[in-house]
Amino acid sequence: MEVFELEGTRYTPKVVFDLKNKVFEISGDSRPEDTHSFYQVLIDWLGKLNSASVHGDFKFKFAFDYLNSSSSKFIFKLIKCLKDLESDGINFSIDWFYDEPDVDMKELGEEYTELADIKINMISVEV
């Protein structure tokens, strides 16, 4: 399970989970037809990580252009999964990218920080 990759589509985000380079990324548009099926695969993959098999500090980048409300629920589940991994000793530095004028995307990242009680770096991108 070194690398897990999904190409982005008009409705689903690009996904790169790269254990070797310790870089994780979900980016693009997210409004899958079946949100649960799409994100459960990612949550299950992350759920298999444990401190006995992986070591070091990992980077997790979220860079959504758009996500629907159903996706926001499953992203929260995924972030909670990262929080559980953190408790197990696997540290993720989480970056939440948003377009500078997109206040709603920024607020969503802040809500995740509060709800999951996890540090998320908010990074604005000039458009």
């Binding site: 649960h36 459960q40 159903s70 929260f76 589940k77």
Partner: peptide
Amino acid sequence: KEKMTEQLGSDSNDAGLG
């Protein structure tokens, strides 16, 4: 935020957040 937390255990695509 309440809905989001409530929905953690649910697998339904409908989050009730729309």
